[in-house]
């Protein structure tokens, strides 16, 4: 099982940095999500890791750079393109060609086609494939050598909800076998369910690297939602404390920050304030991601006000 170690990855296009001094690790037995806004440098980073692009830094797979791996598909499976195949080469032939380059028996071709659910279209040309089927064929190629490491760029693109769920379970199962899975995605809700670890970048720079829970905890403020018939008394009680806020919510509830649920509950009990609901609120991965990458988008859209709704698309 391989540890991926990326050290000092950097790349510039026409003098404009696309990836700046990125270093991170991907551990065996885990799915590591690779997040960043559009244009953050995720795909470039993956290509640098596989030495497809020229740049600075190095990446090793169990201590060896990609170029030193003999029959590389047996070590690293990669999916970098949405449709990485010739449209008129039959799916099975595409995989046989890749297998030939790595001394992989042709029996493995039918095996991976079955794994990704493409057995019925093995003899068909991929030009008739949907985006999701193309992704499955790409994934079949990545799995062909039964590699210990997978590097997948947006593998869920084009998949339907069932396909996404299948992909999630599949990748988690592969990680469960001790493989290193490094996967980029824009689907944050999906990444929240899939990833154990995260590497988050913005404008080519490292923003965060570590467990998903640490990223969410570190990038957001926790709060406690309180439903009480004595909302004014509770706000008055908590509002005077240093570092604590107690704001009224939309439905009469109180949103408390600076204290955890146990502390709010104890204080309310001590002051004979009746509570109906006491719920810790944790930010979603999406909220944490948006907070962490604020200002790091490559392309920022302007909000165009409607002529009759100068404040935007809210209530007229």
């Amino acid at each position: 099982m391989a540890l991926i170690e990326a050290r000092g990855l950097a790349k510039a296009y026409d003098g404009k940095p696309a990836v700046r001094d990125l270093s991170f690790e991907v551990r065996p037995g885990s799915v590591t999500g690779f997040l960043g806004p559009n244009g953050a440098g995720k795909s470039t980073t993956m290509r640098l890791m596989l030495q497809l692009d020229n740049g600075a830094g190095s990446t090793t797979f169990d201590g060896q750079p990609f170029s030193a791996l003999r029959q590389p598909m047996r070590h690293v499976g990669a999916l970098l393109e949405a449709k990485p195949f010739h449209p008129t080469r039959k799916a099975r032939n595409h995989l046989r060609m890749l297998a030939a380059a790595n001394g992989i028996p042709t029996s493995r071709v039918d095996e991976v086609l079955r794994l990704v659910g493409l057995t019925d279209v093995a003899g068909k040309k991929p030009k008739t494939f949907s985006m999701g089927m193309g992704q499955r064929l790409g994934l079949a190629g990545a799995l062909l050598g039964d590699p210990h490491t997978l590097i997948l760029d947006e593998p869920a693109n084009g998949l339907d909800p069932q396909g996404i769920q299948w992909m999630r379970q599949f990748l988690k199962a592969l990680a469960g076998e001790g493989r290193s899975v490094f996967v980029s995605s824009h689907l944050l809700s999906e990444m929240a369910l899939l990833a154990d670890e995260l590497v988050v970048i913005g404008r080519g720079r490292m923003i965060s690297s570590g467990p998903v829970s640490s990223f969410i905890d570190g990038a957001s403020h926790k709060s406690v939602l309180v439903h009480t018939p004595q909302a004014d008394e509770l706000r008055a009680l908590l509002g005077g404390r240093e570092g604590v806020t107690a704001q009224p919510g939309a439905d009469g509830e109180v949103v408390v920050t600076g204290l955890d649920a146990r502390e709010v509950g104890d204080l309310a009990f001590d002051h004979r304030i009746r509570l109906h609901v006491l719920a810790p609120q944790t930010a979603t991965l999406e909220e944490a991601f948006l907070a962490a990458t604020e200002g790091d988008e490559e392309f920022q859209a302007a909000v165009v006000p409607h002529p009759e709704r100068p404040n935007g698309w809210g209530a007229p």
Partner: peptide, 18 residues
């Protein structure tokens, strides 16, 4: 031509790293 027109070159160079 097919390598570049159909984006096969990256698949080729991850299958053959030389």
């Amino acid at each position: 031509g097919h390598e570049y027109r159909h984006g096969m070159i990256r698949a080729s160079l991850t299958a053959l790293n030389s």
